[in-house]
Nucleic acid binder design. Structure first.
Ligand SMILES: [Mn+2]
Ligand SMILES: [Mn+2]
Ligand SMILES: [Zn+2]
Ligand SMILES: [Zn+2]
Lengths: 138, 138
DNA sequence: TCGTAATTAACAATCATTTTTATTTATTAT
DNA sequence: ATAATAAATAAAAATGATTGTTAATTACGA
């Protein structure tokens, strides 16, 4: 995700408006590496704007996704998670506490599709999920 | 997933019963590499047993998952998919038609967590998702 | 063949997300 | 600064996959 100032310009240039709710959502996401769900974002925005609605959170997250400012993904299958870091990276997921750690190692020199598949399939990228247990849960 | 004969014994040894519905679900899953959703399985079973209920499909898939006979996973976030191949392998997902190809290459010699993370995290395995476009959609 | 626990089908409930709608607000032009 | 208006908001209802409940049926060991 860009800085909030740049993001503001990006939204304006798309005919979108800057509202206090949106600014607060941006602040929650800025430099956030906790991979929050919509509910996590909602709870944090609610502390400052108790009247904020879930709809606004969902709509704004979807807006940011469309703009390519956040990435959407699922670990467990019941809740979407959002990642404001859109650079290519991988994840380590603790199966106990479900915490998601970023893994910034570049594996691309070693991870390639076998040739016989690559003939039939154009790869644009890959994503590795490491499964295991974090220090606190061990 | 084991062969249907072995699976039958496994279920019986757990005090479970073999019903025509279950046998049909096993047949649908046997050697199935299409990564079907519960609905996909339902539709195929329905052709032979039009009165079968969705509940039975879900319950049986969950039973198989608990027995370690199928693996559950999500590509897009709105539907679970089931894989009767429980050996470690990876996937290539066509972003257009959502088809899921199996990738059996062993990447484990090259894919390791960086040391500074490995200190805090015990890895039990990893899963790679390749994104791209299949031949038909290209 | 019978008894009984497991399974089934039908239905209701749940829960995350999406859609709808009327009201409010941010921004642009006057 | 004010007004016009398109976009965003909050509240509420709808959706859709999955799970839970229940009464009736069925598999299968005794
Ligand atoms: Mn991340
Ligand atoms: Mn597979
Ligand atoms: Zn943990
Ligand atoms: Zn395709």
């Amino acid at each position: 995700m860009e800085t909030i100032e740049k993001l503001t310009k990006t939204l304006r240039s798309h005919g979108m408006k800057i509202t206090p709710q949106r600014l607060m959502i941006f602040k929650v996401l800025e430099n956030n590496s906790s991979h929050p769900s919509a509910e996590d974002v909602y709870k944090r925005v609610k502390k400052v704007y108790p009247a904020v609605s879930f709809t606004t959170i969902y709509k704004t997250l979807e807006t940011l996704r469309k703009l390519g400012e956040v990435r959407e993904f699922t670990i467990d299958d019941d809740r979407k998670h959002y990642d404001p870091n859109t650079n290519i990276h991988h994840h380590a997921i603790c199966s106990t506490c479900k915490k998601i750690l970023d893994v910034f190692e570049d594996f691309s020199p070693h991870v390639k599709l076998p040739d016989f598949i690559e003939k039939d399939y154009t790869v644009s990228g890959f994503q590795i999920s490491f499964f295991g247990t974090c220090k606190e849960c061990n």
